[in-house]
C-alpha cells in the first residue's frame, strides 16, 4: 500500500482494452446504433403519413428530384473527402487533415444550404410545417437530418481549429476518425432518406 502512489494522469499511451477496440470508437458505434432507431422512428412516421397530404400539395407536386440528386451526390463526395481526412490524419499530415476537414465541412454546408433553399421553396409552394401530416413528418425527418449534418459541420470546423491550435486532447487521428464515423453515418442515413422519401413516391 505504502508504495502505491496515486496521482492524476493518464497511463502513457492507451489503455489496453479487453476487446481491442478503443473506448471512444466503441462508444461512437453504440451511439450510432442508437441513432439508427431514432431515424427509424422518424422514417416510419413519415412512411405512415406520406399519403396524408390533407389541405396541401403532395410529394409528387413538390419534389425536385434532380436537385436532390445533386445534394445527395455532394454529400457522398463529402464522405470521400472525410475518408481522405482520416487517411491524412493517420499519416500525421496535419496540413492535409485540416484541408480535407474543411473541404468536408464546406460540402456539408452546401448540402445544408440546399436544404434551406428547398424548405423555403416548399414553403412558398404551399406547405408549411403545420399544413398536413405529410408536411409535418417530412420537415421533421429531413430537418432532423439537417440538424445532424449541421452538428457534423460544427464538429469538423472545431476539429480543424483544434488541430491548428494544437488543442486536441488525446490521439488526433482517432478524433478525426470518430468525427468521420459520425459523418459517414449521417451520409448513409441520407441515402436511405433519399431512396425512401424522394425516389419511391415518384
Amino acid at each position: 500500500m505504502a508504495d502505491t502512489a496515486v496521482h492524476a494522469g493518464h497511463e502513457s499511451g492507451h489503455h489496453v482494452t479487453t476487446t481491442g477496440l478503443s473506448n471512444n470508437k466503441l462508444a461512437m458505434w453504440l451511439f450510432l446504433g442508437s441513432e439508427c432507431l431514432l431515424f427509424g422512428g422518424l422514417i416510419s412516421t413519415y412512411m405512415l403519413y406520406r399519403g396524408r397530404t390533407g389541405d396541401g400539395p403532395g410529394p409528387n407536386q413538390l419534389f425536385d428530384i434532380p436537385l436532390t440528386s445533386i445534394s445527395s451526390f455532394v454529400l457522398l463526395m463529402s464522405s470521400l473527402t472525410m475518408v481522405l481526412a482520416v487517411n491524412s490524419a493517420k499519416r500525421k499530415d496535419d496540413a492535409n487533415t485540416k484541408l480535407w476537414l474543411v473541404a468536408t465541412a464546406l460540402l456539408g454546408s452546401l448540402f445544408v444550404g440546399a436544404q434551406v433553399y428547398e424548405f423555403t421553396a416548399f414553403y412558398q409552394e404551399g406547405i408549411g410545417f403545420t399544413t398536413s401530416l405529410f408536411s409535418s413528418s417530412f420537415f421533421t425527418l429531413t430537418g432532423f437530418h439537417g440538424v445532424h449534418v449541421s452538428i457534423g459541420v460544427l464538429m469538423l470546423l472545431a476539429l480543424a481549429a483544434m488541430i491548428t491550435r494544437n488543442r486536441v486532447a488525446g490521439d488526433k487521428a482517432e478524433a478525426v476518425e470518430l468525427v468521420g464515423l459520425y459523418w459517414h453515418f449521417v451520409d448513409v442515413v441520407w441515402v436511405v432518406i433519399f431512396t425512401l422519401v424522394y425516389l419511391i413516391p415518384a
Partner: peptide, 14 residues
C-alpha cells in the same frame, strides 16, 4: 409547441 398535427385526428392522423 409548434403546431404540428401528428396525432391530430382532424388532419387524418392515427
Amino acid at each position: 409547441n409548434f403546431g404540428a398535427s401528428f396525432f391530430d385526428v382532424d388532419k387524418g392522423a392515427d
